[in-house]
Structure formats: structure tokens, C-alpha cells
């Protein structure tokens, strides 16, 4: 099975001296291609910090993080941006769609930065919206969509660039349970059918239950890492092949 993410003993320290905060205090974790990891833990345990580093939005203070074999800690801002552009997709708790910009245009944005030509860009953005069941809302603005729909647009935007990993920090945090379940089913489907690797932070065990694997953080460390029995999932192909 191919290892996508290799994290060895990473630390993230904010401030120094009296005010020093060890947001991450020696985390090691591997994520295989096609995995679906739920990250849980109490508030302030370092989940978002971990996701930001995983998403190449930030670099660790110490330790090693390799994404597809590339050591992230040594890269400059622009190279990190290029990694995000080509390898990563983000889904945020607050949706973070561009205001006054249609669903379609929001989905086109990552392709715009990838330099995909106009016609293909439009086509692929449309396909992505279709994947999340919002093809008929393509020309709606974010404020004309419900929260659940906005989050689905955000997911479409994250998957349109065909990333290696989709990172979702509390994607259902702002949604009611019915909408949350819709989103989770969508993520599971992407993971099962499209083999997109997903890392997701959640506070709710109900949501974590959809993942293949649950990692629990506490005080900047991993305190538990369990693989689920996988009832709701198709087996990982690599696992199936190896068994």
C-alpha cells in the first residue's frame, strides 16, 4: 500500500519563554493513499494546527513531514503554494466560498490557478458540481444557497483540481445533523469511488464513524489511532490485494 503522508515527530511551538505554546508536541503518523482519517480530540489539542501543516499552509517547527516523498519543512512559500495548488483540496468549517461569485466560478478558481484553459475549466467545474449534485445551482451565488449546499460547492471546489488529499477541518461544524450526514455520505462516496484520500477533523463521533480510521489528539500528541471495521466502506484496494 502506497504511503502518501509520512509524518515523523513533528512539533509546532507558538511563542517562546513564558508564553510558549506547544500546539503539536511530537506527532508521528502515516496516511496511506485512499485512506479516510478522522481527527478528533478536545478543543486546543492541536487538530487544526496539524491540519494546517498537513495542508502545507504552515510548516512544523521541528520534525519531518513528507508528502509523496517530498520533505515539506524545507520548502519556501511559493513551492508550498504550488503543492497546495496541485496536490491538496480544502474544505472549511465556514465554507469559505468567494462572495458574490457564482458556484461555478468558485469551482473554476483552482483550475484558473492551474492554468487550465477556459472551456475545459468550465467543463470540469461543471462535472465537479454534478458530482456533488448541484449542477442545477451552478449559476447561483453563495448567499442564494443553503449551508449544506454551500459546503457541497466547497467540496466540489476541493475535488475539481483532482488533489491527492482533501483536508476538511470540521466540515459539518456549521450544519444540522441531516445536512451533516449528506456531507459525510458525499465524502464517503468520493473516498470509495474516486479513491480520494481524506483527512477530516470532527468533534462528533457520529461523523467520525464514517471514516476508515480515527486518530485522537490530546495536548498536541496522538493518544489513539484506530482503524474501523469498515462496514460502510469498500475495502482499500491495496489492502484487498495484499490480504
Amino acid at each position: 500500500m502506497t504511503t502518501l503522508v509520512e509524518i515523523r515527530d513533528i512539533r509546532k511551538v507558538y511563542g517562546h519563554g513564558e508564553t510558549e505554546v506547544r500546539a503539536l508536541d511530537g506527532v508521528s503518523l502515516d496516511i496511506a493513499e485512499g485512506d479516510f482519517v478522522a481527527v478528533m480530540g478536545p478543543s486546543g489539542s492541536g487538530k487544526s494546527t496539524f491540519m494546517n501543516i498537513l495542508g502545507c499552509l504552515d510548516v512544523p517547527t521541528a520534525g519531518s513531514y513528507r508528502l509523496r516523498g517530498i520533505e515539506i519543512g524545507k520548502l519556501d512559500r511559493d513551492t508550498l503554494a504550488l503543492l497546495r495548488r496541485h496536490q491538496l483540496g480544502f474544505v472549511f468549517q465556514g465554507f469559505n466560498l468567494l462572495a458574490r461569485t457564482s458556484a461555478l466560478e468558485n469551482c473554476e478558481l483552482p483550475l484558473l490557478y492551474q492554468g487550465v484553459p477556459g472551456a475545459e475549466r468550465r467543463k470540469r467545474a461543471m462535472e465537479a458540481l454534478d458530482r456533488v449534485g448541484l449542477a442545477n445551482r451552478a449559476h447561483h451565488l453563495p448567499n442564494e444557497l443553503s449551508g449544506g449546499q454551500q459546503q457541497r460547492v466547497a467540496i466540489a471546489r476541493a475535488l475539481v483540481s483532482r488533489p491527492a488529499v482533501i483536508l476538511a477541518d470540521e466540515p459539518t461544524g456549521n450544519l444540522d445533523s441531516t445536512r451533516s450526514e449528506e456531507i459525510m455520505k458525499l465524502l464517503v462516496e468520493l473516498n470509495d469511488k474516486q479513491r480520494i484520500t481524506i483527512a477530516m477533523v470532527t468533534h462528533e463521533p457520529d461523523m467520525a464513524a464514517y471514516a476508515r480510521r480515527v486518530v485522537i489528539f490530546k495536548d498536541g500528541r496522538v493518544v489513539s489511532d484506530e482503524r474501523k471495521s469498515g462496514v460502510v466502506h469498500a475495502p482499500l484496494p491495496e489492502q484487498g490485494g495484499a490480504a
Binding site: L57, R77, A81, L82, R85, Y113, S161
Partner: peptide, 11 residues
């Protein structure tokens, strides 16, 4: 948002 999506400082 643009930076998360992959915009470089130069972009």
C-alpha cells in the same frame, strides 16, 4: 481562500 487554493504571493 485564494492562497489555500494555491495562489502564490506573486499571483
Amino acid at each position: 481562500i485564494r492562497m489555500a487554493i494555491g495562489a502564490r504571493a506573486g499571483d
